[in-house]
């Protein structure tokens, strides 16, 4: 008699019959699935409140089967602060995380993001860095790499006109209130496995009450980069990781005194 083993199935924390509305090959789908898998593994679905923000990330609440609230553009970490603190004042502890884009987290919302990190809010922020404003059609963002061609940097990002990109995970790691800050990517299996481990670690740090945990997920945007999904992954592997190295920048358990 044969025994069968389920090696993979769609995570429970994804809403039934979900069809992602992202473009073909977009890494958002992988990132969201990893988040859902970790929510499943840590049994967090029933005690979570997720914060969605503006941009491609906003439709979180259509996909994740957890309580969700949408924040104004960039303010996800402030909204998360309110949710977490209000529950605490009410004597209950909820698992609170944000799911934002790079424009949201590191441009319009940098103030809210950075100060939540500095205050050591016991929340987790996930930032999808696809180096442009994806939803509006690929304009230059704070994370667009030097030389990157976008619809608002048609000859490539240069320092005279546009200045330099922000390295979010490095910046967040400098804040004393941060327990964990890392950058991961999704361009191959090894990195996807690593990304999931990292998300899990960041979530666990919140559960342990260690403070602000942060993951920057370097993601592809094939449509706006005008590349095929696999070419977009190669671009991340060969080009973008030079600007944005895949690395753990802070882990309070490893190097508590950074």
């Amino acid at each position: 008699m044969q025994t069968s083993e389920i090696k993979y199935t769609v995570p429970k924390s994804i809403k039934k019959d979900t069809v992602f509305t992202f473009c073909p090959g977009c890494d958002h789908g992988v990132a969201l699935r990893l988040v859902a898998e970790v929510l499943d593994e840590l049994n967090l679905r029933e005690k979570s409140v997720a914060i969605a923000s503006s941009g491609c990330s906003v439709l979180l609440y259509d996909f994740l089967d957890v309580d969700c609230i949408e924040s104004p553009h960039g303010r996800a970490c402030a909204v998360a602060t309110g949710v977490k603190r209000a529950h605490k004042a009410n004597g209950s502890d909820k698992f609170v995380f944000t799911y934002q884009g790079d424009g949201d987290f590191a441009s319009i919302g940098l103030g809210e993001s950075l100060h939540s990190a500095l205050r050591g809010e016991n929340i987790t922020a996930i930032c999808i860095n696809n180096t442009n404003y994806g939803m509006t059609g690929g304009q230059m963002g704070p994370t667009s790499a030097m030389g990157q061609i976008t619809t608002t940097s048609p000859t490539g990002r240069n320092k005279e006109y546009h200045g330099f990109p922000i390295k979010t995970a490095e910046h967040i790691a400098l804040c004393d209130g941060v327990s964990y800050s890392a950058r991961v990517a999704l361009y191959d299996i090894k990195n996807i496995i690593n990304a999931k481990k990292t998300i899990k670690k960041a979530f666990e740090y919140q559960l342990e009450g260690l403070g602000f945990s942060f993951i920057e997920i370097l993601s592809s945007c094939p449509t706006n980069w005008k590349l095929s999904p696999s070419e977009a992954h190669k671009k991340i592997e060969n080009e973008l990781t030079k600007t944005y190295p895949i690395k753990v920048f802070k882990d309070i358990k490893e190097t508590p005194n950074v």
């Binding site: 609230i69 303010r75 402030a78 909204v79 998360a80 602060t81 309110g82 603190r85 009410n90």
Partner: peptide
């Protein structure tokens, strides 16, 4: 819950989140 927010934008958005609970 009491937070000296980083700005009024931060404060009102914290209120948005807190009131949702």
């Amino acid at each position: 819950a009491y937070v000296c927010a980083e700005s009024e934008i931060g404060a009102i958005n914290m209120a948005l989140g807190a009131s949702a609970t």
